[in-house]
Design a protein around this nucleic acid. Structure first.
Lengths: 201, 201
DNA sequence: GGATTATCTTTCCACTGTCTAGTTCATGTA
DNA sequence: TACATGAACTAGACAGTGGAAAGATAATCC
């Protein structure tokens, strides 16, 4: 039963890490804890992930990949012009569904952003918020305006997700009795459209 | 010279902690490192801050207090209707001026948000983004709309600050040659106004 | 089949947060 | 002034952590 070689230890360690993350939070997610959960010695993870930062970065990269798929799935049922909002809804839904993983992905100071897998997975996920072909039919401006649009969208969705995972939005809603959280979030997401285009005020 | 009682060790430890934070980053900011920097024994901080989380939370609370003052100072030279934008400019300027402290305040999983000082300091800073008297002259809606406005502003400014401290905005700007970073940021901040009011689309 | 290499274990070290017990000093009370 | 009380700080110890060897095992390639 106890084979010296695990065979797929890397995947097993990632699964173990995610289990710990959900069960005990990010502060309990250590190299040794992941090794214990996977039933291997405490130095085994180093061979696959190098560092603790390497393990966390790999898990975060996996999270970004899932986030991307989540947003794409949400956008699958929707007409082209509404895809941006669908992607934003997917982002927010993912944040609410996997708060601990989301915190790791966005708020952790332990990640190594020089890790190529993490950087590319994050860039891939964020690419959903860039102005894509067909989404901005008429007024496709200069690339500089497009950059500003992307930044604005990115900021807004990113910030909204932050508020959600910190529980501050729930706190605010509870202070305003009668407000439905889902309705409020839907309203907030819709405002994303207003950020587009360079201002003329 | 070596008096047994320091007299103002709490303040000295906070200053030491900030020094370490700027010099070596948040991962090097430990209880023992702060004690070393202040020249006291490694268990001295516990008496003033209880935990490591206590020390970091106290430092973060100090950061929120400074952030508030920063934003207020920016708004001091500006007419009433533009105060919201001035506050936002202050936020962003603070984030760019003190990136490590900003990361600690917003991105650290090591803070204890049950700590009353931290919670109140953060709430105080964020109150600058709530619709205040005189700022929304005509269409002061229901309190529920006001909540949504606050959340929207908060999300946007919060998210923009995040992008900045992660260096992603700089990366984006560098990809678009000829773009001036300050100009881009100013444009992005101006878009904050468009988020107000419940959408009718 | 034999050498090579990737995978995993054992042992060890410096460092961390935190507990317990002591030491020094300031301050209030008679 | 004498003394008690308690706050501020030190010293030492402990378990847990990341990480660096160095060794053991198994799969793979020739």
């Amino acid at each position: 039963m106890a084979s010296y070689h695990h065979g797929s230890l890397r995947a097993a360690l990632l699964a173990a890490a995610e289990t710990i993350l959900q069960r005990e939070g990010i502060n309990a997610l250590t190299l040794r804890a992941a090794a214990r959960e996977a039933g291997v010695s405490h130095t085994a993870p180093a061979h696959h992930f190098n560092d603790l930062a390497g393990l966390l970065s790999a898990l975060a990269a996996l999270g970004f990949s899932r986030l991307h798929d989540f947003a794409r799935a949400e956008a699958g049922n929707v007409e082209i012009p509404d895809q941006l909002l669908a992607h934003a809804r997917g982002y927010i839904a993912f944040a609410r569904a996997h708060p601990e993983l989301f915190k790791l992905m966005f708020r952790s100071e332990r990640l190594d952003w020089d890790h190529p897998d993490l950087a590319s997975a994050a860039a891939h996920a964020y690419s959903l918020l860039t102005p894509a072909a067909g989404e901005r039919p008429a007024h496709i401006g200069h690339s500089q305006d497009a950059l500003a649009d992307t930044m604005a969208r990115w900021s807004y969705v990113h910030g909204l997700a932050m508020l959600l995972i910190d529980g501050r939005l729930s706190a605010g809603v509870s202070m305003s009795p009668g407000a439905d959280e889902d309705t409020l979030i839907a309203d907030l997401i819709k405002r994303l459209q207003r950020l587009d285009g360079r201002g003329h005020r």
